[in-house]
Amino acid sequence: MFSKIITYFTGLFTTVEHDVEAIISDFTSTVEKLEDAAAAKFAEARALADKAALTQLASDAAHEASAKAASVAAKIKDLIA
């Protein structure tokens, strides 16, 4: 009788130990997935920031070219008039 009780509690503790290990494993897996997702989003944000910087440079160059063209057009118009 006592051996059955001891066997029951030993099995119960083993089950609890395995459950705790499974929970820790699940949390570890979740943390790793979150870290991977954070790294991926950071890389995406960096790529978008780089693209935004290039777009800003292109926009500045276009504005400068527009201003030069308007200036030349105004000078030519003054010569003709």
Rank of each mutant, 00 (worst) to 15 (best):
M1R: 07
M1H: 14
M1C: 11
M1V: 11
F2G: 01
F2C: 03
F2H: 06
S3N: 11
K4R: 09
I5E: 13
I5L: 14
I6F: 05
I6D: 01
T7K: 07
T7R: 06
Y8Q: 09
F9V: 07
F9Q: 08
T10N: 14
L12F: 15
L12P: 01
L12T: 12
L12K: 13
L12C: 13
F13N: 01
T15N: 02
T15S: 03
T15W: 01
V16K: 04
V16F: 10
E17R: 03
E17I: 05
H18P: 02
H18C: 02
D19K: 11
D19S: 15
V20A: 13
V20D: 04
E21R: 08
E21F: 08
E21M: 08
E21V: 08
A22L: 04
A22R: 00
A22F: 02
I24D: 02
I24Y: 04
D26T: 09
F27Q: 09
T28H: 03
T28E: 06
V31L: 11
K33V: 15
L34S: 07
L34P: 00
E35K: 11
E35L: 13
E35W: 10
E35F: 09
D36R: 12
A37D: 14
A38D: 12
A38Q: 13
A40M: 07
A40N: 11
A40Q: 12
A40H: 13
K41V: 09
A43Y: 02
A43Q: 05
A43K: 04
E44C: 00
E44T: 04
R46G: 03
L48Q: 10
L48W: 04
L48A: 10
A49G: 06
A49I: 07
A49T: 06
D50Y: 08
K51P: 00
K51M: 11
K51D: 11
K51W: 07
A52F: 05
A53Y: 05
A53F: 05
A53Q: 14
L54R: 13
L54C: 13
L54G: 15
T55E: 15
T55N: 15
Q56P: 00
Q56I: 07
L57D: 15
L57V: 12
L57C: 10
A58T: 06
A58K: 06
A58I: 05
A58L: 06
S59T: 14
S59G: 05
S59D: 12
S59L: 15
D60F: 01
H63G: 03
H63R: 10
E64A: 10
E64M: 07
E64R: 07
A65S: 12
A65I: 09
A65K: 14
S66N: 13
A67P: 00
A67Q: 12
A67Y: 08
K68Q: 15
K68W: 06
K68C: 06
A69C: 02
S71C: 07
V72C: 01
A73G: 03
A74F: 02
A74Q: 03
A74I: 01
K75G: 00
K75C: 02
K77R: 15
D78L: 01
D78P: 01
I80W: 01
I80A: 01
I80C: 01
I80T: 02
I80E: 03
A81T: 14
A81Y: 08
A81P: 00
